[in-house]
Amino acid sequence: MTLYDLVTLTVKIGANAQVFENIQARGDAPGSKLLGCWYSDIGTLGQVLVLRGFDSEASLIAERKRMLLEGNPFGCGEFITDVKIDSYALFPFLPPIEPAVHGGIYEMRVYGTKLASLQHTIDAWEKAVPERTRRTPLVGAMYALDGAVPRFLNIWPYASVDERSRIRAEAVKDGIWPPKGGPAHLTTMESTICVPAPFSPLR
């Protein structure tokens, strides 16, 4: 799978448990695979994020149409106040995202890039990722197919917030991250620290 969507639900206060139950029951749509479910802990609070992989472009589009026309994502309509759906394509040098146990927290980082800079960014990441992932795994990096473009999402797991700070600082100090020339092409940066739901395949 190289096509993904990230569904962000803004959840009513106190409704996380019911939302998790519904997502667990309905997360796999035809042609898709539920890969992760998290709730935001640092950043914009009150959000539940759902990552799914799709076996084809047709499956992704069909599921998007179904969700829009049905208007009840994962059967959670009564428990949410807003929904956002973003589609992504995996950086071509990375393996497909698979369920795994990493523990602790996940960081969802979204970068905007300058026009005509996306391929440069992918090339720079391809050179830098092997050394960076000796410090901590990269779940995935993928570029947006819709919404504000060009932008890309990268997902990093850590044992804790403290470990995240330490590893990132060491990677910068050792000169292995960020990718050489990468920051010059960025226009925006956004980060959310998330905690996996108990049933999340990525946790």
Rank of each mutant, 00 (worst) to 15 (best):
A124Q: 11
A116C: 12
I61Y: 04
D123C: 07
L145D: 09
P92T: 09
G181A: 14
K173L: 00
E190R: 13
E63T: 14
G14K: 01
S40A: 09
A159D: 04
T133E: 11
M142T: 08
A169Q: 08
K84Q: 14
A116N: 15
P73N: 04
G46I: 13
S191G: 10
P92S: 11
D5S: 09
I85L: 13
P92Q: 09
P179Q: 04
R134Y: 05
Y4L: 07
V19I: 07
Y111A: 06
D82F: 03
G14V: 04
G75M: 12
P150W: 12
G112S: 09
G75Q: 13
P96N: 05
K33T: 15
F91H: 10
V161L: 03
E163W: 01
E163C: 07
P92E: 13
G31M: 07
N154H: 14
C194G: 05
V48R: 11
P157I: 02
N72W: 01
D162V: 03
E70A: 08
G103N: 15
V161A: 02
D41M: 13
L118R: 06
N72G: 00
E78K: 15
A171S: 11
V110G: 05
R168T: 02
A17M: 04
V50N: 08
S87W: 07
S87C: 06
I42N: 13
T121D: 09
L202Y: 08
A124I: 06
K127T: 14
T121L: 05
E190H: 15
T44L: 10
R52S: 05
L60W: 05
L94V: 09
N154V: 06
Y158S: 00
P150D: 05
N16F: 02
E21N: 09
L6D: 03
D55H: 02
K114D: 11
E57S: 14
M1I: 11
T113F: 10
F152V: 06
Q119F: 03
M142G: 07
W177L: 07
C76G: 10
D28H: 06
I80L: 05
V19C: 03
I42F: 15
G53R: 00
R134N: 12
L34A: 00
I122C: 09
A116Q: 14
G53D: 00
A128L: 02
F152D: 01
G46Q: 13
E170F: 06
W38K: 03
V129W: 01
H185Q: 02
P130A: 02
P99N: 11
V7M: 00
T10G: 06
G75E: 14
V7S: 03
K33F: 09
A15Y: 11
Q18S: 10
P201M: 04
G181T: 11
S200T: 03
V161G: 00
K84H: 12
F54L: 02
F93V: 05
R166A: 12
K84F: 08
R109P: 04
A148P: 13
T121Q: 08
A148D: 15
L3Y: 12
T81I: 14
G53V: 05
K33L: 14
L115I: 15
L90Y: 06
W156T: 01
Y143M: 00
